[in-house]
């Protein structure tokens, strides 16, 4: 319990980004925590429980994606849960937009970007989690940022054209 206490925020945010639109984050967290609980004695470095949880969540999410197809209800469930936590609807939309755009990135870039930008891990820690080196992580984050910005721009253009079409239809 105490060990998890320090991990909660960062672990949840990572799992949210992983599970967004693909699975129920609650199921993912429960699976990971049950496994971690039973294997807790085998974890050598208890201080790195967060790293273990993140790796387990990622592996579990990959195996779950193979079994489960994306479901629209999951995004609604995500919004409801955030609303229950007191998050404003506009903010929920922004967060979902971010997760949707992140989901379009290559998985490694996405992981590195989420862990660095949202969860606040250092590059060294990310390198340890991903079994890589700091240079590679730095590259992934840099490319991820650029690609995310481009995706945001494209999404904005698409939204604008869609809005214009709607206005033309109303005018006619």
């Amino acid at each position: 319990m105490k060990a998890y206490d320090a991990c909660h925020d960062r672990f949840l945010r990572y799992c949210s980004s992983l599970a967004y639109g693909k699975m129920d984050v609650q199921d993912l967290i429960q699976d990971v925590l049950v496994t971690a609980y039973h294997k807790f004695e085998k974890i050598d470095n208890k201080e790195q429980l967060l790293h273990y949880l993140i790796r387990a969540a990622r592996n579990r999410s990959i195996s779950n994606w193979r079994k489960q197809k994306p479901q629209a209800e999951l995004t609604d469930l995500h919004a409801e849960r955030l609303a229950d936590q007191g998050v404003q609807p506009e903010t929920v939309l922004d967060i979902q937009l971010l997760y949707r755009m992140l989901d379009k990135l290559p998985s490694k870039q996405k992981d590195a970007l989420v862990l660095f930008e949202i969860n606040g891990f250092s590059m060294k820690e990310i390198a340890e989690i991903q079994g890589s080196n700091e240079g590679a992580i730095k590259t992934k984050i840099s490319r991820g940022r650029k690609k995310l910005a481009a995706l945001m721009k494209d999404d904005s253009s698409a939204s604008m054209s869609s809005l214009m079409e709607t206005l033309q239809t109303i005018t006619l």
Binding site: Y4, D5, R13, D94, I95, L98, E117, L163
Partner: peptide, 26 residues
Amino acid sequence: MRAKDTSYLIEIAKQAPTELAKQEVL
């Protein structure tokens, strides 16, 4: 309509409460 700022969105996601409350997970 201006494109959303990436840093802004990331900051929102960073500051927003988690999807599940800590008490719930504990």
